[in-house]
Simulated scan of single mutants.
Amino acid sequence: MTEAEFEDLLQRYLDGTSQPGERELIEQWSNQLGEPENFVLPPTEREQVRAAMWRQIEHLTQGRSGNGPTDHTLTGKELHHSTSFWRMPVVRWLAAALLILGVALAVVLPQTWKSTLAPSTMAVEWTQHHNKGKKTELLTLSDGSRVTLFPGSSLHYRPGLIGSRREVRLQGEAFFQVAKNPDRPFLVYTDQLVTTVLGTSFRVKAYAGRKNEVAVQEGRVSVQLRRGADLSATPVQPATEGVILLPNQQVMYSALTPRPLRKQLVQNPVVLVPQTFTFDKQPVSKVLQALEKAYGVELVYDEAKVANCTITITFYQESESLYDRLDVLSKALGASYSLADNARILFHSDGCTP
């Protein structure tokens, strides 16, 4: 059973459209939620998961009893000592929903599922690789993809990356160099995002309690919120609610401050197409166009205002960043610039005297 099939099974249960036998299967599993043997999270992270689950349960149940929202939120410690918490039917029901939201993905299926499911839908055990060292580790997957796994990070994947999609789960940070295969997209799941590629290089950060980040080095990737993600989407046929990232672009998302996904420039854009940065009495627009091409960025400016502006300037140091060069250009022209959504840079100039 793939992750997508498992989430579909839970969604049908919540929608009341379960097929024969599915409802009993979900309820059998939900009755065992909270038992220690069903958790793979270390104790230090369990409290965070329980607290996050309780916040979501409060959100989902507000107004259903007619009493309005409560003023008291249980802490992780209080939840830990509440022996009746995991026994409440509404909690077990909502815990299943929380899996769809990606909050409690560390809960594993009980062994009893294996005897209940038909052979064609039996869950395939996932392999976990955890980097316990102080240096990065390089993993080579069965399809030839390479993953640089950072210290303290874990990667989960099925042996042979079986299935119509090559799927992995990440906790922590990793740099992916994905082997190209247009027929089998490569998906990286974090607790909040789904990143889909056909073959390219990108970095993903997904540490517990922090923002999820995806940054692209080359090629293009599709990023969606994990909840409600269209798993059939690709960078060629992207999802409506997702974003497409190109080199030097990134997306950041936090469930604590949810907002639509917006791509932005990475902190230090690198040169993608080498350019000659020596200009002798050249139009400023030509300098801006050279920067756009070199870094793959979109510089937005008023062409009419800079039409009469020329400049003699040379950018020497290879260590100079894009922003260093924009600082020098802005100072020479009495101009300024600012970062904008959609990975754009706005260049502000009042023009030049002819």
Rank of each mutant, 00 (worst) to 15 (best):
V49A: 04
P110I: 08
P43R: 11
Q28A: 11
V108A: 01
S115D: 03
L74Y: 11
A97Q: 11
E22D: 14
E37T: 11
V49N: 03
E35Y: 10
L109H: 09
P42W: 13
P20E: 06
S84E: 07
R55Q: 02
L117Q: 08
G68R: 07
V90R: 09
A118T: 14
V40I: 13
E47F: 09
W93D: 12
D71R: 14
Q56V: 14
M88V: 14
Q32A: 09
G34L: 12
E24V: 00
R46E: 12
A95V: 09
E37A: 15
A97P: 04
L99R: 13
M88D: 14
Q48P: 00
V40W: 08
T17K: 12
E58M: 15
Q19R: 15
S65K: 07
S115N: 15
W54R: 02
A51F: 09
E35F: 05
Q19I: 12
V108T: 07
R46D: 01
L79K: 06
L117N: 05
V40H: 12
L94T: 03
A97M: 12
A106N: 05
Q48Y: 04
G21Q: 07
R23L: 00
G66S: 04
L60F: 09
V103F: 08
T17P: 03
R92K: 14
A106Y: 00
A106W: 01
P42G: 13
I100A: 00
W54K: 00
P36K: 05
P69N: 01
V91E: 08
V91I: 15
D15Q: 06
L117K: 09
T112S: 08
Q48R: 14
F85R: 09
Q56M: 06
R23K: 12
L33A: 10
P89I: 08
L94M: 15
W29P: 00
K77G: 04
V108M: 04
I100H: 00
V91W: 06
